[in-house]
Each structure stands twice: as structure tokens, then as C-alpha cells.
Amino acid sequence: MDSRRVIDGLSTVLLWAAGFFIMGLLVFFLAYILGQGLPVLSLEFILSPSKEFEAGGGVGPQLFNTFYILFLSLLFSVPVGVGAGVYLAEYARPSRLTNLIRLSTECLATVPSIVIGLFGLIILVNIMGLGFTILGGAAALALLNLPVLVRVTEESLRAVPQTYREASLALGATRWQTVRRAVLPPALLGLVTGLTLVSGRAIGEAAVLIYTAGVSVSRHFPDLNPFVAGETLSVHLWYVRAEGLRPDADEIAAGTAALLILVVLAFNLLIGVPARIYQRRLLGKH
């Protein structure tokens, strides 16, 4: 018997097994979290304010803050992150400076989120005297996501065939016109994937926000003031489990966890599906 065939068969089995293991793990997690949490979810739970010491509170303000902080952090990080990515991919010539920029982004990407949280605590909360605020949380979160955005942008632009750039420049387009009209559209799906990645991370992030946006919510709901503390769903989950005094902490935690999963899923579909449709249209598949 040919040993190459044995190895081929064996590796096929092993790769399948690895794939199934991951799938199984994922299914188990989802089933467990949703199984515990879905029964708790109700319109009232999702919309009503939380209670500190008694049973029956909801997560309305936390849900609102989650999106509000996500929105603000993207507002800060997307222009800078995408801009830097475009610069690195399209404009920067290979040089010490660009290598330094690339190295810095990679270093920044490896900084643990708790460090960014504490950094935010010192700079934003204490030195600048903001206190725990939604704005501070969003800024710290933007810092966390910036390197990922730079990288994803650069990589998705580099994946665009050089021939598009040549074709555009040969027609007398300027560099900016080439980037804007010939390179960015085909790179859009990659950019959107990056955006969902950082958004998912932002929605799930707790360590950064505990020290910058705080663990309490405004008395008013909804409160658009970015200078008040704004606990998010993830932080709430941590808080309820770690120091909550509510009698129904178990249910609230389970419900919050399930809601978090649904929120991430909904968010991914919301921006992922249109991007995919757009991509298919570009490629002429119907």
C-alpha cells in the first residue's frame, strides 16, 4: 500500500475532525447561552431600565449605550484608520518612515485591552478630568480598534489587482480618482468585513470600558449626553456577575449574554448582507 495514500487519507480525516470540533464547540456555546438566555428575553427586559438592589430590572440603557458608544468610537476610528490604511497601501513609498508606521500599528494591535482601559482611566478620566463618560469610553475603544482598521484597510486594498490601477491611470485619472473609483469599490467587501470585526469586538469589549465609561448609567433614558457615564451590555454582564446585589442576577446575566449574541449577529447581517449583494453585482453574478 502506498504510504502517500495513507497519509492523504489520514490528513483528510484529521482536518475534518478539527473542523467538526470547532463547529461543535460553537454550536454548544450558542445552544447553552441562548438556551439559558432566550427565556429571559422579553420586550420589557430589553427596553426597561435596570435596578440595582431589587429583582425585575431590564437592560434598556445598557443596550442603548452599547450602540451609542459603538457609533461614537467608529466615528473616531474609521476616518483615521481607513485613511491611514489607504495611505499605507496606495501612497506610501517603501521607506523607514512607513515601516515605522506599520510597526507602530502592529505594536498597538498587541496592547492588551485592559492596558488601554487603564491608559484611558489615567489620561481621559483623571488628567483631563472627564470622569467616567460615554465620550471617554468611545475614544478609548477607538484606540483599541484603530490598528485593526488600518491593517484590514491596507490588506483589502492590496488585494485589488494592480491592473485596475494601471487601467485607471492610463486613462488619465489622478491618483485620488484611481483610489476612489477603481480601487475602493472592489475592496469594499474586505473593508466591511473589517468593520464588522471591529464592531463585534467593540460590542463585546468590557475591560476598556469599565475604566473609561464606567459601570453606571444616566438617570435619564435615553440620554444622548456624551458626558455622562454609560455602562454597556458587556460591562453590565461583568458587573452583574462580579458585584451585582440583585436577587435575579443569574437571569439578568443569562438574558444579557443572549442579547449580546443577537445584537452582534443582527449587526453583522445589517452591514454584511448589503455589502455582499454589492460585491456580487460588481462581479456580474446574479
Partner: peptide, 15 residues
């Protein structure tokens, strides 16, 4: 480049 245009070896229409 507007005055002197170019066609490449491999067809390269935009998507």
C-alpha cells in the same frame, strides 16, 4: 496619459 492611451496585454475591465 489622456492623449496617449494604453491597452494592456490581459484585458483589464473594471468590475
Amino acid at each position: 496619459r489622456k492623449r496617449v492611451g494604453m491597452v494592456f496585454q490581459r484585458p483589464n475591465p473594471f468590475p
